Measured scan of single mutants.
Amino acid sequence: MRSPRTRGRSGRPLSLLLALLCALRAKVCGASGQFELEILSMQNVNGELQNGNCCGGARNPGDRKCTRDECDTYFKVCLKEYQSRVTAGGPCSFGSGSTPVIGGNTFNLKASRGNDRNRIVLPFSFAWPRSYTLLVEAWDSSNDTVQPDSIIEKASHSGMINPSRQWQTLKQNTGVAHFEYQIRVTCDDYYYGFGCNKFCRPRDDFFGHYACDQNGNKTCMEGWMGPECNRAICRQGCSPKHGSCKLPGDCRCQYGWQGLYCDKCIPHPGCVHGICNEPWQCLCETNWGGQLCDKDLNYCGTHQPCLNGGTCSNTGPDKYQCSCPEGYSGPNCEIA
């Protein structure tokens, strides 16, 4: 077999650049994923090309098998939009790539799955459409700058595939050579959905506090709520009108309100015997008056200043008058 000629994957630097851009600016990249293909086995019993010639040398006159050299087999892949009637021409609109030389006439790579040499990765940054057309071609490398490479066999497949970690196996069982391969579509990290176009990256910072479920939905951490999980859940009972919080379990009062639940107004400074319904009010309790509710309107009842059976009459805020019984006098009937 001729010395292998290595063929790198098509578009790999571009895919790395796209992945970097997506990581830095995830909101700009609407989708991100990759179409993967792995060659599993190849069977070319006679070492022939599609045109019937030998990959190298002439045929044995007896059994008609190619004798001089085995094929240097590598694969090309073209991925494009779905076609009900597949045409070989036209651009590979979803991507293209190739393997290096991975074997001779016949080989089996099932035991070495995950080997990069027999895998082609086609990254995409558009919403995966699920339906596709795939062209797979086996080629013989001439290892010659003058002699062109020659095609051994080709296969085409049109179908639908959803993103999954599971592989789907396909076979080419007609023509001079048979080969088996597997395909799958996977979303990149933080991308979800059938189109790999739903973005969700767990975070716990100013912009949100959430994890992501298997469908890419945000699940808020304990103590947080809202579409972006950036609204803290305040202390139970915290007034929704007069209290708020920036951290879970907190209850910060608005100006003019106080209390554990921010449901108590702050009265006017200096208010003595008054209450409030709104901040800075001083609504006097019964029998109290004045701007600060510090004037006693029922001095008689509060202090009972009249002595010796005198009768007390309220005459104004903090004022009274005693009517003394016979034989007593003085402001409080204290003089006998």
Rank of each mutant, 00 (worst) to 15 (best):
residue 240 P to R: 13
residue 142 S to N: 04
residue 299 Y to D: 02
residue 317 P to H: 08
residue 18 L to P: 00
residue 24 L to M: 08
residue 123 P to A: 03
residue 288 W to S: 00
residue 84 S to P: 13
residue 143 N to S: 11
residue 109 L to P: 13
residue 30 G to R: 02
residue 89 G to R: 11
residue 336 A to S: 15
residue 325 P to R: 14
residue 23 A to V: 13
residue 263 D to E: 11
residue 275 I to F: 00
residue 186 T to A: 11
residue 73 T to R: 14
residue 55 C to Y: 01
residue 266 I to F: 11
residue 183 I to N: 00
residue 209 H to Q: 03
residue 242 H to P: 05
residue 264 K to E: 13
residue 104 G to S: 03
residue 161 I to T: 08
residue 204 D to Y: 11
residue 322 C to R: 00
residue 298 N to H: 00
residue 57 G to D: 10
residue 187 C to Y: 02
residue 224 W to C: 01
residue 335 I to S: 14
residue 42 M to K: 03
residue 223 G to V: 10
residue 300 C to S: 00
residue 274 G to R: 00
residue 284 C to R: 03
residue 56 G to C: 13
residue 127 A to D: 01
residue 155 A to T: 10
residue 133 T to A: 02
residue 120 I to F: 09
residue 129 P to A: 06
residue 128 W to R: 07
residue 211 A to T: 06
residue 152 I to F: 06
residue 156 S to Y: 03
residue 290 G to C: 02
residue 158 S to W: 12
residue 221 M to L: 13
residue 33 G to S: 04
residue 142 S to G: 11
residue 122 L to Q: 01
residue 199 F to I: 02
residue 268 H to P: 11
residue 65 K to N: 14
residue 161 I to N: 01
residue 160 M to V: 07
residue 205 D to N: 09
residue 13 P to H: 14
residue 208 G to R: 04
residue 129 P to S: 12
residue 269 P to T: 08
residue 241 K to Q: 10
residue 23 A to D: 01
residue 22 C to F: 13
residue 185 V to A: 03
residue 246 K to N: 09
residue 322 C to Y: 00
residue 107 F to Y: 05
residue 320 Y to N: 11
residue 277 N to I: 01
residue 322 C to G: 01
residue 314 N to S: 03
residue 96 S to L: 06
residue 114 G to S: 10
residue 107 F to C: 04
residue 265 C to G: 01
residue 202 P to R: 07
residue 28 V to G: 10
residue 16 L to P: 13
residue 35 F to I: 10
residue 34 Q to L: 09
residue 112 S to T: 11
residue 301 G to W: 02
residue 53 N to K: 04
residue 62 G to R: 13
residue 83 Q to L: 12
residue 184 R to S: 00
residue 289 G to A: 04
residue 246 K to Q: 10
residue 190 Y to C: 11
residue 221 M to V: 12
residue 117 R to S: 08
residue 106 T to P: 13
residue 129 P to Q: 02
residue 39 I to V: 08
residue 55 C to F: 08
residue 206 F to Y: 03
residue 249 G to S: 04
residue 34 Q to E: 01
residue 238 C to W: 13
residue 87 T to M: 13
residue 258 Q to K: 04
residue 32 S to P: 02
residue 46 N to I: 08
residue 187 C to R: 10
residue 205 D to E: 09
residue 217 N to I: 13
residue 56 G to D: 11
residue 321 Q to E: 04
residue 308 N to I: 14
residue 286 T to P: 01
residue 234 C to F: 04
residue 117 R to C: 12
residue 332 N to I: 13
residue 47 G to W: 12
residue 57 G to S: 12
residue 124 F to I: 06
residue 100 P to L: 07
residue 79 L to H: 01
residue 82 Y to H: 15
residue 165 R to Q: 05
residue 288 W to G: 00
residue 327 G to R: 09
residue 78 C to Y: 05
residue 279 P to R: 08
residue 71 C to G: 15
residue 165 R to G: 14
residue 187 C to W: 01
residue 42 M to I: 11
residue 154 K to E: 09
residue 266 I to N: 05
residue 202 P to T: 07
residue 50 Q to K: 04
residue 45 V to A: 03
residue 224 W to S: 04
residue 312 C to W: 00
residue 173 N to T: 14
residue 94 F to V: 12
residue 325 P to T: 10
residue 98 S to T: 05
residue 260 L to P: 05
residue 87 T to P: 15
residue 38 E to G: 05
residue 96 S to P: 07
residue 51 N to H: 03
residue 251 C to G: 14
residue 200 C to S: 03
residue 164 S to I: 05
residue 281 Q to K: 03
residue 260 L to V: 06
residue 68 R to L: 09
residue 164 S to R: 08
residue 332 N to T: 06
residue 166 Q to K: 10
residue 170 L to V: 12
residue 45 V to G: 04
residue 3 S to T: 15
residue 209 H to D: 02
residue 46 N to T: 03
residue 314 N to I: 11
residue 148 P to A: 08
residue 151 I to F: 12
residue 22 C to Y: 12
residue 164 S to G: 12
residue 109 L to F: 07
residue 227 P to T: 09
residue 233 I to T: 04
residue 210 Y to N: 05
residue 325 P to S: 15
residue 326 E to K: 09
residue 284 C to G: 01
residue 81 E to G: 15
residue 54 C to S: 06
residue 182 Q to K: 03
